[in-house]
């Protein structure tokens, strides 16, 4: 029906958009951060439970387009159990992938977002949850916005 869109709306993305994983508030979170994409009105809040340097649990709530919801959902699956350093590296890989389409190293299922680079208006949707994650880990109280300069 929209075959030519399969590079953007891959099956995995559609699945995570319809059935987001770890989609809940976390009352006993170690830290949390909000992400906001004023262009789309996307709002999400990401929660983390840390065990020293390691992410023991992660969840999110919020609303947004299919790409941003699926990105947050896949993020939670990907970063659970990882250390700060590991997550930082994955963030760099994801950023590179969604802006250039290049996949460096093993990004696992996140590779479904490689097609996003062909849709410049949607890069922010794919990266929003990752910025919220970075903000939560850095303990910044400020909500992050895709309109701030470094995004």
């Amino acid at each position: 029906m929209f075959d030519d869109l399969s590079d953007l709306y891959q099956e995995v993305i559609l699945d995570h958009c319809k059935h987001p994983r770890n989609f809940r508030e976390m009352t006993a979170a170690t830290c949390s951060a909000q992400g906001h994409n004023p262009l789309c009105g996307d709002q999400l809040k990401l929660y983390l439970t840390l065990d020293g340097d390691r992410i023991r649990d992660v969840s999110f709530v919020g609303s947004g387009c299919c790409i941003s919801k699926a990105s947050a959902s896949l993020l939670t699956e990907c970063v659970k159990g990882k250390t700060r350093a590991e997550v930082g590296k994955t963030f760099d890989q994801v950023r590179e992938m969604v802006t250039t389409g290049k996949i460096e190293g093993d990004v696992g299922r996140l590779a479904v977002f490689a097609g996003v680079h062909k849709y410049p208006a949607r890069v922010k949707c794919a990266i929003l949850a990752w910025h919220a994650l970075a903000a939560a880990l850095n303990g910044q109280g400020q909500p992050v916005s895709t309109e701030s300069e470094d995004i």
Binding site: F2, L5, L8, C40, G41, C65, I67, Y119
Partner: peptide, 21 residues
């Protein structure tokens, strides 16, 4: 369905809509 997904798919059919606030 989020407005941006509607607009993205409509664009695939050559239709220029706007989604947002």
């Amino acid at each position: 369905i989020h407005a941006h997904d509607v607009v993205e798919l409509a664009n695939r059919r050559g239709i220029a809509l706007r989604g947002g606030h």
